[in-house]
């Protein structure tokens, strides 16, 4: 039985109409998706995820053209490249592509099966497939995680990634894990400034001269949230004051740093919160004097809360100071 026939009888039975001798009007107009005006088809396609769209695009050429022309919002993607293996995850259950080295060839594995390929290294094929998705001008991604653990091959991986990357990718949050910051100079320019709001970096080595170039990038200047883990942020704190929130590990905090932070951040309309941890010991007594009034009831011996009003406004800083672990958290609050 054809689907349309089944659909017709299913709804007749559902509505309590059990007359099997009912003469169906075969000439009655049957509505098809392709009969719909384009704006309605666009509305329908908008609710389909990337895989359902790929299936729909494979139904026929007209649909392929139409579907590929629609904006696509995707929640999450994860690219991992390391020795012997690489994978792309799509943030959905059982949706991934795995690339594995087997001697001179490599295999790919995905939900519907896999294949064995020769001639291209497994990591290169992973990067090429990743680029195909990310470089689509209609593709909008909320969260992208990139993880590279192949220090010896980093230059080749980055060259492959950057090669023929035509459009700035629309990615809202980038979580980037790599051995060193050097790769940032090639990674960050791939993203559309302004659309990229969150940058989270996890690196073991930080190169001061690279960071000097990074802070000049539009992607850095327009981002709103910044987190750096596993290493100490090198550079002036001034380069962080445009963020709404930042969370870093810093070499050492001085009294002058605290004064400057309070002065500049009190004028920022965007600033919400920052957290800093320090490597070297600090002059606890002098810094505490700069933090404001200690809220005795809310404070413990090594974890004190200070309130510091911002002049001519109804706002104040709430500062949590953990002298033992050398951490300071500043939040802007309203009275």
């Amino acid at each position: 039985m054809e689907y349309r026939e089944f659909d017709f009888w299913f709804y007749r039975f559902l509505n309590g109409e059990f007359d099997l001798n009912f003469e169906r009007d075969k000439d009655k107009k049957i509505y098809e998706l392709m009969d719909m005006p384009l704006d309605i088809m666009k509305n329908v396609v908008e609710y389909l995820d990337i895989f359902d769209r790929m299936s729909l695009a494979s139904t026929n050429r007209s649909f392929k053209t139409f579907v590929e022309d629609q904006k696509l919002f995707h929640p999450k993607m994860f690219l991992h490249v390391s020795e012997e293996v690489a994978f792309i995850e799509f943030g959905m259950e059982c949706r991934f592509i795995l690339y594995k080295r087997h001697g001179n060839c490599f295999t790919t594995k995905m939900q519907q099966g896999g294949k064995s390929l020769r001639g291209v290294p497994y990591w290169k094929q992973a990067i090429r497939d990743f680029k195909k998705v990310l470089n689509d001008p209609k593709f909008h991604l909320k969260t992208l995680e990139i993880e590279f653990y192949m220090p010896g091959l980093m230059p080749s991986i980055l060259d492959e990634l950057v090669d023929s990357f035509i459009h700035k990718a629309r990615v809202s949050s980038l979580f980037f894990r790599a051995p060193s910051t050097d790769s940032l100079l090639k990674i960050l320019p791939l993203f559309q400034p302004g659309y990229l709001t969150t940058i989270e970096l996890s690196m073991h080595e930080i190169n001061g001269s690279v960071m000097e170039k990074v802070i000049e990038m539009e992607q850095w200047k327009h981002a709103k949230y910044f987190t750096m883990t596993n290493t100490v942020f090198r550079g002036s704190l001034h380069h962080l004051y445009h963020f709404k929130q930042f969370d870093i590990c810093y070499q050492q905090l001085t009294v002058e740093d605290v004064r400057q932070m309070k002065k500049i951040l009190s004028k920022s309309s965007d600033f919400e919160k920052c957290s800093l941890r320090f490597m070297n010991s600090v002059d606890v007594g002098s810094i505490e004097k700069e933090l404001g009034s200690c809220i005795e009831g809310a404070s413990k011996r090594y974890q004190k809360i200070y309130h510091s009003p911002i002049l001519n406004t109804t706002e104040y800083f709430e500062i949590e100071w953990k002298s033992w672990t050398r951490e300071i958290t500043m939040k802007k609050r309203k009275l």
Binding site: Y3, L33, V44, Y47, D52, N60, F63
Partner: peptide, 26 residues
């Protein structure tokens, strides 16, 4: 209503979609 039509496509293969949406092949 468009969401309902879209839900019909969830997890379907191209062949199944052609049947559900009455789409012609090339």
């Amino acid at each position: 209503s468009c969401k309902k039509v879209a839900n019909m496509a969830q997890g379907k293969t191209p062949a199944q979609l052609r049947r559900v949406y009455l789409l012609p092949s090339d």
